[in-house]
Nucleic acid binder design. Structure first.
Lengths: 193, 193
DNA sequence: TCCCTATGTAGGCGATGTCAACATTTAGTT
DNA sequence: AACTAAATGTTGACATCGCCTACATAGGGA
């Protein structure tokens, strides 16, 4: 049949198409009705899967954080210590560059304002793992005398900040372009080496 | 007369009220029509001053950057060097905390995507000054052997990241609360002392 | 087979951004 | 002072959007 009454996998299709739209048009141009049109579905169909637009964005954010966690998990193959922290920080930045749209959603205050409990839990777990890595690194002698809270604050600020500087258009002008990936690593090494 | 045909200073009134709304309701609830209602003006009146909603947000962003620059200018009373850089970084973070709404606009990718040339110029000038401060500090011996590009990247990432961590709700859970201002200073000192 | 739930459709409501046509006020020129 | 042009505000309209309600269809147990 040409178009079956039921789409079959509308939820996934919505998420995929939404992320595509996000990539080239930004959050402001993301609309449930336009998504429905794109997928040849009635204008209210998306509401069956995401009762509200915020729910859609929240689901995208959850996917994003899971993807981010998976990316930094891969960096955990390194032995514990400041080297592993370094690998995780770089993995974070690389992930942000590779998934700019998802990263943008995670950085959008208007999305995160309505973060679901699931999403918050994911982020807290992620933060917790970073704290453990810091503790492990300190046990190996790295910045042994510094307050762990300060190290955590510094790590989070530096990684989040670097990711933003590398992905947001507004920083493109002042930031050096030549050999940027190497400079990012050197910048992170100022803290983690 | 009760309500004169002309408001008198609608442009300023719009900006002021918009920032207020931003503060307690967020960008998503900012609407030109609601602003018009708040100011007892017809629904299309704001368009005379801001042809599009993006123009309004852009104007707010310009005010924000000017305010930010003024705040960090005050920190320039310190003598040049890493100490002045430190003062500027802390002034940045303090400004972000004190003007969370403006800071949120500046950090909103959907706002900055349409940044006007004015706005971009302001930001470039701000970045340029930071580069000069780094050079001055290096001339005084601070991290003399490090690539200035790397130092700049690190400074921008760290300050932007810290401001975000301190202002965005989503970081409130994992970040330590006790003595936070002191810890922020300590975190910045890891780089600037 | 029958029913329940999940999923999709059709229509509508209030709100929004933006446009066009018109009104009023202000400022500048003569 | 009179005339005119520009600035500023009003009214009405249109397309779109999020979301709601009522209804239609499909699929999966009992």
């Amino acid at each position: 049949m040409q178009s079956p009454y039921h789409h079959g996998n509308l939820r996934e299709a919505l998420l995929t198409r939404a992320i595509e739209t996000l990539n080239d048009r930004g959050v402001e141009h993301l609309s449930l009705r336009a998504l429905a049109r794109d997928l040849d579905v009635s204008h209210a169909a998306p509401l069956r899967h995401f009762p509200t637009k915020a729910d859609l964005l929240n689901a995208i954010a959850v996917e994003g954080v899971q993807s981010l966690i998976a990316a930094t998990d891969a960096a955990q193959s390194a032995p514990p210590g400041s080297g592993r922290l370094r690998a995780m920080a770089l993995a974070y930045v690389d992930w942000a560059i590779a998934h700019a749209a998802l990263h943008g959603v995670l950085r959008n205050p208007d999305v995160m304002r309505h973060a679901s409990d699931d999403l918050r839990q994911l982020l807290i777990a992620f933060a917790e793992r970073q704290k453990q890595e810091i503790e492990a690194a300190q046990n190996q002698g790295w910045r042994k005398d510094t307050d762990p809270d300060v190290l955590f604050l510094h790590l989070v600020s530096l990684t989040a900040g670097t990711a933003i500087v590398m992905t947001e258009d507004i920083y493109r002008d002042p930031v050096p372009t030549a050999d940027i990936r190497h400079k990012v690593a050197a910048s992170i090494d100022l803290f983690l080496k």
